[in-house]
Amino acid sequence: MSNSIKNIKQLELRIFFLMILSITLCTLSIQDVTAQEVKKNRVRLKADYVKVMGDDSYFDIKASAKIEKKNVPVSNIDIIIYHELNDDQIKLGTVTTDNNGEHRFIINNFNTIKTDTTNTYNFLISFKGNDAFKKAKKSMQFKDANITTEIITKDSINYISATLRETSTDSLLVDQSLNVQVQRLFQSLRIGEEFNNTDENGTIFVPIEAGIPGVDGNLIIEVVLNDSDEYGTVKGLVKAPIGVPIVDESTFDQRTMWSPRNKTPIFILIFTNLLIVGIWGIIVYLISNLFKIVKLKS
């Protein structure tokens, strides 16, 4: 009897010991995990929706984090883009941010994506998190708008007329501020006023100043609804030969002192070659004289 009690007691002790051991181990490993969590930084996701008429729509995704009080781009992280519809999440794609923490995600087949009942598109971009950063997500809602553009010439002045409509209801959007600009290499150049508000017909009518240069006289005029809360950014483009043709003024094709060797100035070519041929011709004659002397044996 005492033996069995002893045994039971031993067993209980062992069980107790083992439980303590396993609990400490578990808590240690959990601590480990949470310790990592504490070191991780927060990622801020930003997505701008841009729609270019007649071209693709895209999201300009930017990931940044505040590390040591400075905003630092988060590069090389994977971001998944979802389309949310009626509690469903449809994965549209995965992208990796570049060295600047950015990526442009082109939305393929935008017309196949459906809106919800309020004609709003719902998107979600999410980052699953990694060793250095916590997971993050950002949702976007917007309605689709479109801009139709036309160039009208009246009394030899060129005007751009643009109409802003909401796509799903085909209603005209009144009193929205549109920017009119001409496409340039780095950033577009503004034409007209800073604010061009659409009238009751959802239209703006802006004169385009003369004397804007373009390749072969072609200009690409942009009408932009910039960063609207409801519609994102919508860009309408129109190409028109209403600019001043560019004239190449470079000296690249000419023979100049700074041209490559295949375009040496004629004067230098002739003068130096004449000198070289003249002098070396005489040298060759002199060396041939040496041979003549050798041959004359007596």
Binding site: I279, I282, L286, N289, V294, L296, K297
Partner: peptide, 27 residues
Amino acid sequence: LNWKGSKAQKAIQTKSIKVIAIMIIPV
């Protein structure tokens, strides 16, 4: 170069030296 001091050789040599002496100045 088999110099024998012959008239022919001297003629060539003298002429050559004259040519060089004139040419070396502009060069």
